[in-house]
Design a protein around this nucleic acid. Structure first.
Length: 535
RNA sequence: GAGCCCGUAACUCAGCUGGUAGAGUAGCGGACUUUUAAUCCGCGAGUCGAAGGUUCGAAUCCUUCCGGGCUCACCA
């Protein structure tokens, strides 16, 4: 038994629980049975109490509160539906079974069966005739206690350290029902988006995560290597170019909910891997896509909140269509910046005047974007579509039908956060080649995020792609807004963190140095072993 | 990458201008047959993020490092 090794560093609480584990076994209670007797959801019993009072019922879940009173014990079980109280009496269970309760802890999983009743103080409760341990917990959970003070719910305890909450999400989830709720909402958002697109004849597809050439966005990629092909592969930064190849192939409406990977900084709105919804519709342009985005967003807001208002960080907006649509140049003019020419020299002068740094190697479009971000973006409370970006910034967007300096593009903002980006997709292969070449020049001048030239994509366009509207939507950001989460980390179950230095000392001890090393050796030796092995 | 802040028991935190640690919850022991932050009595629990330095003496002061948060920058 490696138990002794685990004990010392983990402290007295783990030690006590290990002792109780043995106590359970000694009393003939299997601490980790394979199955559970059937049980009802806690909420079903509470809500259906009117009809169920006095009936035999069973519940199961995690022990989240425990109050012993000598020959009586009250505890609360929490399952996926909610909480319910269980009342256990020595008189009902018999002295021998009742004594087993001393080996229970907060955090254990338990099944209990008995009569449903209401206590003197009014709480719906199962008066247990029998119980079963379903799984023993060896580490203490920082379970919160709640009290009601003057009608307000006051929570004591819980897990506050954000680092621990993100790193040990299982604890965060186990202890905070509201965190579980965020991820249920996330799932509902995803389901709604699928339903919305499926209902409009979009086909859900899957395209490569590992790509020989990355593209579809301006970003630095993660690089990896395929051994058998002996070739460099990149984790996708976007699936755009693949989806548009499908348009060439005659799939007129496609979408993908894709994990994208960008080798960039991490902050409140950026995680290195994130979920992007991209959808493309043949015979549509960016105006059509604006309408579709409006419809989609108001639909998902209705789905989640029941209304059309969204509140985030103390601000409330109404997402009912139509949203404001403002071109980049108009917005700048409104902000007092009049841009006569999209030329490098006057723009640079303008940026300098505003006290902005002009990155070396920045083209006219980039400078315009800088000015925009500084003067306009912070004031965009939304919902709003910012449209018609300069060509240079949008190498995959079709030139604007009335102004060749611009493209037919929009970015959608809510609360100043950009959550969608869309174009009338560029389907002129010759223009696309020129744009790629311009990007290559930017790259040569040191822009690490310049788009790569993708010959196969150009070849695809040369076969002919219908006029198409396309949208990329940041799902995580959308979920942030829908759940009132201030950080993207609150809507990603396991956000990227710096690796923990080594393993926890007590876990090292539990596994044993030698065993850990063994395991690694075995894994590394495996391929060689199978080559020359018994088979 | 820059600035500010944080890291003390399982959890939430206190520890002033240096004298090697405290509270509540959780845990352990005891009392208690309708409690609900149950209550009452008692007890234990900590490489004070890490390493150096100053000092007779460091959780406390200094330096560096590690990890995190916020703001900014970067990032459509």
């Amino acid at each position: 038994m490696p138990l002794s090794n685990t004990q010392a560093p983990a402290g007295d609480q783990v030690r006590a629980r290990l002792a109780k584990l043995e106590g359970l076994r000694r009393s003939g209670e299997e601490p980790y049975p394979h199955v559970s007797p059937p049980a009802a959801p806690a909420r079903a019993l509470v809500e259906g109490f009117g009809d169920l009072e006095g009936s035999e019922q069973a519940v199961r879940g995690r022990v989240v509160a425990f109050r012993g009173h000598g020959r009586t014990t009250f505890l609360h079980l929490e399952d996926g539906s909610g909480r319910i109280q269980v009342y256990l009496r020595q008189a009902d269970l018999g002295a021998e079974r009742y004594a087993v309760l001393q080996y229970l802890d907060l955090g254990d999983f338990l099944w209990a069966g008995g009569t449903l009743f209401r206590t003197r103080s009014g709480e719906i409760t199962v008066q247990a005739r029998e119980f079963r341990v379903l799984a023993k917990a060896l580490r203490p959970l920082p379970l919160a206690k709640e009290e009601v003070v003057g009608g307000a719910r006051v929570v004591h305890g819980g897990l506050g350290d954000r680092e621990v909450r993100y790193r040990r999400r299982y604890v965060d989830l186990a202890v905070h029902a509201e965190v579980r709720e965020v991820f249920r909402t996330r799932a509902r958002v995803l389901a709604y988006l699928r339903r919305f697109l499926d209902g409009r004849d979009f086909l859900e597809v899957e395209t490569p995560v590992l790509q020989p050439l990355y593209g579809g966005a301006a970003a630095r990629p993660f690089t990896t290597h395929h051994h058998a092909l002996d070739t460099t592969l990149y984790l996708r930064i976007a699936d755009e170019l693949y989806l548009k190849r499908l348009l060439v192939g005659g799939l007129e409406r496609v979408y993908e909910i894709a994990k994208d990977f960008r080798n960039e900084g991490i902050d409140r709105t950026h995680n290195p891997e994130f979920t992007m919804l991209e959808f493309y519709q043949a015979y549509a342009d960016y105006q059509d896509m604006m309408s579709l985005v409006e419809e989609m967003v108001v639909g998902v807001v209705r789905e989640i909140t029941g209304g059309t208002e969204l509140t985030w960080r103390g601000e409330t907006v109404d997402v009912s269509p139509p949203w404001r649509r403002v071109s980049m140049l108009e917005a700048l003019a409104t902000a007092g910046v009049h841009v006569a020419e999209i030329e490098r020299t006057p723009l640079e002068a303008c940026a300098r005047e505003l006290g902005l740094d002009v990155p070396t190697g920045a083209g006219a479009g980039k400078i315009l974007d800088e000015i925009f971000k500084d003067r306009v973006e912070p004031a965009l409370r939304g919902p709003v579509f910012v449209t018609d970006h300069p060509r240079e910034l949008s190498p995959l967007a079709k030139a604007h039908r009335t102004d060749q300096r611009l493209t037919e593009r929009f970015e959608a903002f809510l609360f100043g956060i950009e959550f969608a980006n869309a174009f009338s997709e560029l389907n002129d292969p010759l223009d696309q080649r020129r744009r790629f070449e311009a990007q290559r020049e930017l790259g040569a001048r040191g822009d690490a995020e310049a788009h790569a030239l993708d010959e196969d994509y150009l070849r695809a366009l040369e076969y002919g792609m219908p006029p198409t509207g396309g949208v990329g939507m940041g799902v995580d950001r959308l979920v942030m807004l829908l759940t009132g989460s201030p950080s993207i980390r609150d809507v990603i179950l396991f956000p990227q963190m710096r690796p923990e230095e080594g393993r926890l000392p007590d876990e090292d001890d539990a596994t044993g140095e030698g065993e850990g090393r063994d395991r690694q050796t075995r894994r590394e030796g495996d391929p060689a072993g199978s080559e020359g092995g018994a088979c």
